[in-house]
């Protein structure tokens, strides 16, 4: 298995460290950023195999970053996993977002608190193309 690269974007340093450590334990090379702008640049620089984004971030939110990545030719095909703490609170209408940007749904969802095994399961599923439009909200 060739070494894969992942980019983790989360405004919380602790969570970034946690996610990074989990993925590194699984053999990923992980780059991380703590805000959406830096994260977007990082993704363009690194061209990772998979992206993990925190849905709720101050400033440009995870959803905005998601839609930008999905409409960018360079990044639109990179599997993307949303890390959500509060899906029930945000009530994100993915159908509406997908319609608006003519794009795919996130390739996987991971809900906090993070369970390392489940996270890796979702990440591998996304890499294997089992997520995408058929992606199931975990929780």
């Amino acid at each position: 298995m060739s070494t894969k690269t992942a980019v983790v974007i989360d405004d919380e340093i602790d969570l970034t460290t946690y996610l990074t450590t989990i993925l590194e334990s699984d053999g990923f090379i992980v780059k991380s950023a703590n805000d959406a702008v830096t994260g977007e640049q990082l993704i363009k620089d690194v061209s990772p195999d998979i992206i993990l984004i925190d849905l709720m971030m101050p400033g440009r939110t995870g959803i905005q970053l998601f839609s930008r990545l999905r409409i960018d030719e360079k990044t639109k095909d990179i599997p993307l996993v949303m890390v959500t703490g509060i899906k029930e609170q945000t009530g994100v209408d993915w159908g509406e977002i997908v319609d608006r940007y003519k794009t795919r749904r996130p390739d996987g969802f991971v809900e906090k608190p993070i369970d390392p095994e489940r996270l890796l399961g979702v990440v591998h599923g996304a890499l294997a193309g089992q997520g995408g439009d058929a992606g199931i909200l975990h929780g």
Binding site: D14, Y18, T21, I86, P113, I114, P116
Partner: peptide
């Protein structure tokens, strides 16, 4: 919600 985050912090720390 807040406790979930803290739990992540703890779990993450331990991990």
């Amino acid at each position: 919600h807040s406790i979930k985050n803290i739990l992540d912090g703890f779990n993450g720390g331990v991990y």
